[in-house]
Amino acid sequence: MKTTKRRDFIKNLARGAVLAGIAGVCGMLGLRKNKYQCSGRCGTCKPANGGVCPLDSAAGSGFVWQLDPEKCTQCGRCATHCVLAPSAVKCFHSYSICGYCDLCGGYLRPDAKERNTGAENQLCPTAAIRRKFIEDPYYQYTIDEELCIGCGKCVRGCSTFGNGSLYLQVKHNLCVNCNECAIARACPSDAFRRVPASEPYLLKSNQEKRIS
């Protein structure tokens, strides 16, 4: 029987381990779900929109991350999964959709005892929404982006009880435009997608037109 020297055996072992490691990493990458498959809906591949598919372009070459407010389910992961702290996702407020209500579902907790600015009555965990009396019965709500962490609680309240004027967007003065956005990977509703940097926000413009 042919004997193998310990040194050779360890060498072979190391080679085998490296190969196994490479195979494991390749397998892991291959098994990972590719979330950014063409849905045929973004339309940026059309000549009128530039003709370049965002899936083919490297990060930073004209495309940025954005989240579609129509798909967003306000799961809260925008607040916890961004590589930045606080998150680059912030609440947007569309004033033309807002009803300027006193009983605001985005500002007040449903069990609020009073309709005022008391911390115990506010839905936002960081008090990032400012409420200002305009005239009876109108109140204006503004977002303090320094305080907003993008948790989406106000968005859920506003869309459930109100007009849906509050919604989340990636702020591009903050976003570092990661190659693979950590929030996009964790987003349960695939609301994140690459959009042309020339039109970096997905605003509720259709709804604004409809209401106003």
Partner: peptide, 21 residues
């Protein structure tokens, strides 16, 4: 090491961030 690298270890949003209607 593969499992460690491949697993998402970020915590789910806590109670303060969740809002059920």
């Amino acid at each position: 090491a593969g499992i460690y690298v491949g697993t998402n270890r970020r915590a789910e949003p806590g109670k303060s961030f969740s809002y059920s209607v």
